[in-house]
Design a protein around this nucleic acid. Sequence first.
DNA 1: GCCCACTGTTGACGGGTTGTCAATAGAGCC
DNA 2: GGCTCTATTGACAACCCGTCAACAGTGGGC
Lengths: 207, 207
Amino acid sequence: MSSTESAPRWRRLEPDERRAQILACARRLFGERHYEAVSTTELARESGVARGLINHYFGTKRELYLEVVRELMFIPEFTVEQLAHGTIEQRVAASLDRFLAVIERNRAMWLATISTGGYGRDPDVEQIMQEADEIAVDRMLETVGLNHITAGREELRAMIRSYSGMAKAATREWLVRRSLTREQVHTLLCGTLLTIITGVHADMFNQ
Amino acid sequence: MSSTESAPRWRRLEPDERRAQILACARRLFGERHYEAVSTTELARESGVARGLINHYFGTKRELYLEVVRELMFIPEFTVEQLAHGTIEQRVAASLDRFLAVIERNRAMWLATISTGGYGRDPDVEQIMQEADEIAVDRMLETVGLNHITAGREELRAMIRSYSGMAKAATREWLVRRSLTREQVHTLLCGTLLTIITGVHADMFNQ
DNA sequence: GCCCACTGTTGACGGGTTGTCAATAGAGCC
DNA sequence: GGCTCTATTGACAACCCGTCAACAGTGGGC
């Protein structure tokens, strides 16, 4: 009889599947509010899962959070080949266009990540950001075709890391304060990056 | 007799004095570790005070934290002299030279201040940081002589706020990572600021 | 010198949070 | 249908935070 049929109270999933499910939920909540304002109780409820399961899969709340940050920072590896033709202006423009597109698609997470700051910011997050920055610099050098440069290489990398500080601030102006349009941000970032590569750095090392 | 003399178990201080004492302790602990890794229990113990007193003086832990951030955002006064002569290149160069000189003289203070990283997702932290940045932008426009500009004024301000993100990152490369010399930072900041003012912004608003 | 009022300070309480772990119950396999 | 494997649960202990009534320094009035 139908009344005696006991529907399972919970579904048993593959670890990867459950992990992804919790992670998706965490991505959403941590995107909406900051770390301490999200409780594991809420995370569990929203995921439709017992609280203990979160610890089972991720260890601690902090590790879950770091996993979310890591996921965001190391995403979309777009193919460089597509961008490797045309003048340097065109390549820079195309590359930054991709960059802004990715951010637009992951708005909440991007903002949460570049702003996880505050006084005494978390060293773990800091390290993840630094690693991500190095990768971003590599990618940038590759798309503009300067990846095999030798003269002043470290200086150029340092300048591009500095530049990424402006890129972050500019996306905040665009997405949060709405004081700049996407086009304006694009123009700003293209102009300054070209100045650094073909102006500042080139002059500095006589290329 | 000395055995019957009861030494007070605690000293009664002036509110301002006690406040300052707790604040000093909070500054130290929040400087060593991040927000959630510091408990009010520990803060109270280190301050040699009952935990409830912290709430009595600051309301919540978060408000105490914000007070510390606010205090750190006090930026040393840049001596605003009249640099309003010469070409725009000269004025920018002189202004940024002053900027780096002040930073060099207040190294520790500056690093502590910018180590607050980006803006907090927390609206309260965000507001404090924004106020500090607005002041910096005002000062910059003034020294460069563009404080009375009208066309695209808000956009220019937004771009300079973005630029300040690069300035912070660049000083970090100089003072912390030592990957750039002071001269290189100066060249980088001059080049990009000029690009923004006379290139990006001027083109954008047909000046 | 003594007492008293003022108020800086304490400490226990209630509600909420996090990590652990033994017990439980889906679900595939024979 | 039963058995085993393990994904999942739920209660537990420890901790953390904000509140608040009660306590006790301390300076002023006499």
